[in-house]
């Protein structure tokens, strides 16, 4: 199968998540892809985790042996193994809440999805689809309005603040619907985070995120990250909830055409509610990202078969 080689120094020089640490420890070597390059992530309990590029790629996806071209840089952060095909910066963005001792932390699953990483990120940042795709969970028709919110770029990160979404009758005694408040943060082109007021402590936030691994231009793996103040729910309940939510998004994501994210604002029809994704597309444009995106909408862009099917 021919695939466009990455040739995108911006993405090659970033850290990317490639596996959850417990998966590597418990399930043994994991073969995966990053920016079109095949990798093996391995590290039995008690040994260091190693990420190697595969030089020849056996057709059986279960095979993780074979020629290894080179070892890649490795770091473990937020419960995941991160690597890079180029020269990554010393530091990765931080999530201060992750270090607070009283939090419940869970890597709650890694889900493959057949679209570009950018499309997955935009879906995570999107409020307007809640009543349609997550009806009964994150929204409910006809409560569809997206109220005005603010988007700013601070220290090279995109922040969307004051996001509100109406959720239906919270209790029998309700005289008004319940408005849930969100803040979104994009600290890395493929790592959106969501801060939501904790039901247990109004002064603190639950943090939910996805770390999206761009496997190819049109395939991604969404690693789910949860950092909650939750005393009641067990692992299985929360994992199941996350799987339901992602399972609702997946068919929608896989039916967006083209799969690569069009960066030209005229390529699709943004509305006020899409403020964050408008900024996201501009940000990717300014960073110079070219892999997994369609940069120039003025040119007739030839869609590849991968873009459609």
């Amino acid at each position: 199968m021919s695939e466009r080689s990455c040739n995108d120094p911006v993405l090659e020089n970033l850290w990317h998540p490639v596996a959850a640490v417990p998966d590597v420890r418990e399930r043994g070597p994991i073969r995966t892809q990053l920016l079109g390059t095949y990798l093996v992530v391995s590290g039995p309990e008690g040994e260091e985790i190693v990420v190697s590029e595969l030089s020849d790629v056996p057709s059986d996806p279960q095979v993780t042996v074979g020629g290894r071209a080179r070892s890649l840089p490795v770091r473990e952060s937020f419960g995941f193994v991160w690597t890079s095909l180029g020269s990554p910066p010393d530091a990765l963005f931080d999530i201060p809440e992750f270090h607070e001792p009283d939090r419940w932390y869970e890597n709650s699953g890694s889900f493959g999805v057949h679209t570009s990483a950018g499309r997955v990120v935009e879906n995570f940042l999107d409020l307007a689809h809640f009543p349609f795709i997550h009806a009964g969970y994150l929204g409910e028709q006809p409560y569809t309005e997206v109220k005005e919110y603010s988007v700013s770029i601070e220290n090279g990160e995109i922040w969307a603040t004051g996001c509100e979404f109406y959720q239906p009758i919270a209790a029998v005694s309700a005289t008004d619907g319940q408005v849930t408040k969100y803040t979104y943060r994009l600290a890395h082109p493929f790592c959106p985070l969501l801060y939501k007021t904790s039901p247990l402590d109004p002064e603190r936030f639950d943090v939910i995120g996805i770390f999206v691994q761009p496997m190819t231009e049109v395939r991604a793996c969404a690693h789910q990250f949860l950092c909650l103040l939750d005393e009641t729910n067990d692992d299985a309940t929360i994992k199941r909830f996350q799987a339901i939510i992602f399972g609702q998004d997946k068919p929608i994501l896989e039916n967006q055409v083209p799969k690569r994210l069009p960066l030209d604002p005229r390529a699709e029809t943004p509305i006020k509610a899409d403020k964050t994704s408008i900024q996201y597309r501009r940000w990717l444009t300014d960073l110079g990202v070219s892999y997994g995106v369609i940069r120039d909408g003025n040119k007739q862009v030839s869609a590849t078969k991968e873009d459609v099917h």
Binding site: M1, S2, V257, P258, P262, D264, R266, A267, E268, I294, G297, N298, Q300, V301, S302, A303, T304, K305, D307, V308
Partner: peptide, 12 residues
Amino acid sequence: PDQHLGDINRPN
């Protein structure tokens, strides 16, 4: 398998 399908991104 690698034939191009034509132009589908036609913003204007």
